[in-house]
Simulated scan of single mutants.
Amino acid sequence: MKRKLGIFAAAITVGALALSGCGASNSNSDSAGGGGTEASASGAASKYANCSLTDGVADATSASAGSGDKNITIGAFSGWDESTATAYLMKNILTKNGYTANVKTLDAAAAFTATTKGDVDVITDVWLPTTHKTYIEQYGDQMEPLGCWYDNAKLTIAVNSSSPAKSIEDLKSMGGDYNNTLVGIEPGAGETGVVKDDMIPAYGLQNMTFTTSSTAAMLASIKKAEAEKTNVAVTLWKPHWAYSAFDIRDLDDPKGAMGGKEGIWNFATKGFGESNPKAAQLFKNLIVPDQELSDLEDLMTQKYQGNNPDAAVNEWLTTHPDFANQLQTGALK
């Protein structure tokens, strides 16, 4: 799938969406870069080490709407476009099932806090068992899972393909080739915590400067390095559009410090499923395979340039006419 570099400028201008594509397949195949997922999982997060896409799936056609508030707020993580895509997709599905739904875009830390307080009802981009384990260990007993919809997500350290490092461990001796800098994303992002708490200590990279600002700034550093033909090392993740737009590659992770393969889960505020059983079942039925996710993100980021996600979802559903019914009946695969 061809990506256009022109959309990058729109991402920097808009600033609200860091445009992720879909480079991984939605399957149970092993990810490159060295496992380590279960070793990295701990505490409350360890129960989510295995993502089964069909656990809890059931026909929601005749499910009770329940006695809960029919106004449902879905949280989307700023800078994670798969979060935006699924949040607006579920907004559309819920609206067609009689709910009044809206999407609130927040930094990950704020989104988790808002979900525990009920200011946000559901978040759709919880990476487990590693990326968001700290949040689950802190807030897990104040939330409830509503199924895993993608099972091959991955955190990465990426570099320009022409640069010398092949493994993350090479950065200890080759840091100078990358200006002794690792470019990160938002300070509150789960990946930022993984890099600071797990990866940097594991590989002894304390002498490198780890900068955190925004996903847009990280993407800008890749674009700048490519234009100036210099080296760059960044925190990235799959699925993401940057792998198609730029000449970059992942560094091997022999110690599994970035966490290996993960699942992406829905989580709701405690008691949501009991109060809103039909809405909860619709979230449990969500499964978005790789190509379908790519199609939706392409519309959001290329045609609509992040400005009208509702229109992007409407158009996507016209080209995937069976999706809404299959989600409702639990027939997605």
Rank of each mutant, 00 (worst) to 15 (best):
S46K: 14
Y135Q: 14
A220D: 07
Q281E: 03
N307D: 14
K284P: 01
T301M: 15
G190W: 06
L317R: 00
G260K: 01
T211K: 07
Q326I: 07
M174N: 12
I74N: 06
G75Q: 10
E228K: 09
T318W: 04
T61W: 08
A76L: 08
Q138I: 15
G23N: 08
T329C: 10
N307F: 15
T211H: 03
C22T: 10
S52V: 13
S162F: 08
L236V: 05
P187A: 01
A324E: 13
N71K: 14
N71C: 01
K238Y: 04
N285E: 12
T86P: 00
V195M: 09
S25L: 08
S62H: 10
K117S: 14
T105C: 09
G21F: 04
D247H: 02
M300L: 14
D107F: 06
P145A: 09
E262A: 04
T134N: 15
I93N: 01
L317T: 03
M218H: 11
T212H: 11
A225V: 03
K172P: 08
M199Q: 06
N276H: 04
E228L: 03
T61P: 03
L205P: 01
A45M: 10
T54Q: 08
S64N: 11
T319R: 11
H240E: 15
Y48H: 10
A268Y: 07
L286P: 03
E169T: 09
A32P: 08
Y150Q: 07
A153Y: 09
N308T: 13
D250K: 01
A158R: 00
A24S: 12
D107G: 11
F210H: 02
L106T: 04
V159D: 06
K333C: 03
K303Y: 11
S67R: 06
L5R: 15
L182W: 01
A60S: 06
V122F: 13
I264P: 00
N180S: 15
S42V: 15
M143E: 09
G259W: 00
A39D: 12
K2A: 11
G184Y: 08
G79I: 02
S40T: 09
M1D: 05
N26S: 11
